[in-house]
Simulated scan of single mutants.
Amino acid sequence: MAPRRTATKTPKNTPAPVPIEPAPCQPCGGTGNVAITVRVGRKRRPVGQQDGLCLNCLGSGTDPDA
């Protein structure tokens, strides 16, 4: 006859672990987009701004160093 396997059971009274929310990215403020100045002309004068992908968090909005 094969030996019986005994498995340890986890206690049922332990509270569930609280998920830790990641910190927002500093350059984009957690949005994933940053404003990039658009320049035109020979003297490269600024005309306006457009949205660009945040290169620090790659658009996720969370701080990669946290």
Score class of each variant (00 low, 15 high):
residue 55 L to P: 05
residue 31 T to Q: 14
residue 47 V to R: 11
residue 53 L to H: 06
residue 51 D to I: 14
residue 25 C to S: 10
residue 23 A to N: 15
residue 20 I to R: 04
residue 53 L to I: 08
residue 17 P to K: 01
residue 34 V to L: 12
residue 40 V to I: 06
residue 6 T to I: 14
residue 26 Q to K: 11
residue 40 V to P: 00
residue 48 G to Y: 03
residue 26 Q to N: 14
residue 31 T to S: 14
residue 56 N to L: 06
residue 64 P to N: 10
residue 44 R to E: 03
residue 59 G to P: 12
residue 20 I to L: 09
residue 40 V to Y: 03
residue 63 D to H: 13
residue 60 S to C: 15
residue 22 P to L: 13
residue 62 T to C: 03
residue 18 V to L: 05
residue 29 G to N: 15
residue 10 T to M: 07
residue 51 D to L: 12
residue 11 P to I: 08
residue 56 N to P: 00
residue 58 L to E: 03
residue 47 V to S: 02
residue 13 N to K: 07
residue 25 C to P: 04
residue 61 G to C: 06
residue 2 A to I: 06
residue 27 P to K: 15
residue 14 T to I: 15
residue 44 R to M: 05
residue 15 P to F: 15
residue 51 D to R: 13
residue 46 P to H: 02
residue 65 D to F: 10
residue 13 N to S: 15
residue 57 C to K: 03
residue 1 M to E: 06
residue 2 A to W: 06
residue 6 T to H: 15
residue 48 G to F: 01
residue 63 D to K: 05
residue 26 Q to D: 13
residue 63 D to V: 11
residue 49 Q to I: 01
residue 26 Q to P: 11
residue 31 T to G: 07
residue 39 R to G: 01
residue 11 P to N: 08
residue 22 P to M: 11
residue 49 Q to G: 00
residue 60 S to G: 09
